[in-house]
Computed example of a mutant assay.
Amino acid sequence: MKPTQKPANPNFSSGPCSKRPGYDITHLDLKTLGRSHRAAIGKVALERACVETAELLGLPEGYRVGVVPASDTGAVEMALWSMLGARPVDVFYWESFGQGWLTDVVKQLKLPQVNEYGADYGLLPDLGQANPANDIVFTWNGTTSGVKVVDGDWISDDRDGLTICDATSAVFAMEMPWEKLDVVTFSWQKVLGGEGAHGMLILSPRAVQRLESYSPPWPMPKIFRMTKGGKLIEGIFRGETINTPSMLCVADYLDALGWVKSIGGLPAAVAKSAQNLAVIEQFVAEHDWIDFLARDPATRSNTSICLILDLDAEQVKKVVKLLDAEGVAYDIGAYRDAPAGLRIWGGATVEKADLEALMPWITWAYQQVSQ
């Protein structure tokens, strides 16, 4: 039977992600529009974005938060180009974006001492291979594989190297061991459902020390430069952005942060995302034709939830198109480089009731295609 109840919000894309429940653009504080981001009003809004992010995430004393260009990609690139080369590097990857960082390290920066630790989609590499003497580059959550790091126990407390963590689909949805992480990046358009084009860069005191004590041998583009005269440009982490940001996007991000506060802060956002995963876990447990791409249940992502079906790739595409045509799920096909399947966003901006309404539609679409 074709289901009758549809999700109130069918936006399950893994980026840009669904807006928060109750979102209304007319409620944004738009006093900054048409004003310079260098003016006091612009600086205050940008500094709020940094300060409130740090407060909500519970960052340790001395950690800095900055708004940088080019989304999460720009934030990661800034870290790689500015800090790597001082030590050997261990790169851990198990999906498309992590493999992209490996490409940058090996083929663009051409670092001589790089250890590659990879795994196929659905698996994690052996994180125990991490060398405390080396810098480490990894994603906390594999956005295109639905496989996440379980914890930070594999990272040494006595490490000499830096940990550079792409956490764009993990921050505000998973518990992060901040003391283990020296550089963390994310973008507004992921877990908080913000707008694209801006990245967030979080630095530990150890990362700042690296920036102030090491100068890479290659030319540094202007938008990557975080030091001047051997000292950190502190203004970047007080809202004085490197280039011109969209103040409309900043207002949108501040609205998202306010929403997180209103629901109970970070613990509530993490719990909400975990509840969303539980809906899909129950559904998968009840149907033998669908499964998680992540092979170890402990590594299942609660944001980018990746599923495989006992259908071929063309049949999976038909399932995705059917759900789109019915207006019950948009943009849930697997990432282009990943195995054919579904990828359903389960971050806190997605309502549990909408996922519950979607599950019978997935059964219906599967039955239509597999007959």
Rank of each mutant, 00 (worst) to 15 (best):
Lys2Asp: 00
Leu28Pro: 07
Gly22Ile: 12
Asn134Ala: 13
Thr241Tyr: 12
Leu293Glu: 14
Lys272Val: 00
Asp312Met: 03
Trp345Val: 00
Ala207Trp: 08
Leu355Ile: 12
Phe172Ile: 06
Ser246Phe: 01
Asp166Leu: 13
Ser18Leu: 00
Ile41Asn: 03
Ala278Cys: 02
Leu257His: 01
Ile233Cys: 10
Gly146Ser: 10
Phe186Ser: 09
Gly327Arg: 12
Val184His: 04
Arg295Trp: 10
Leu342Met: 10
Gly264Ile: 11
Val319Asp: 03
Asp354Cys: 02
Leu111Met: 09
Gly66Phe: 07
Met1Ile: 04
Val68Phe: 03
Asp252Ala: 00
Leu358Ser: 04
Asn243Glu: 15
Lys31Val: 08
Ala285Ser: 15
Glu195His: 09
Val270Glu: 09
Ala348Lys: 05
Leu311Ala: 00
Ser13Met: 08
Arg238Asp: 11
Ala269Pro: 05
Cys17Asn: 10
Pro297Gly: 14
Phe186His: 07
Pro297Asn: 14
Leu33Asn: 10
Leu123Tyr: 15
Ser304Thr: 15
Ser273Val: 04
Ser204Asp: 12
Pro267Ala: 07
Val67His: 02
Ala79Asp: 03
Ile202Tyr: 11
Leu124Thr: 07
Arg206Tyr: 02
Trp361Asn: 04
Ser246Glu: 09
Ser18Pro: 09
Ser204Phe: 07
Asp120Gly: 12
Asp120Leu: 07
Met176Pro: 05
Val250Glu: 08
Leu355Ser: 11
Lys321Ser: 14
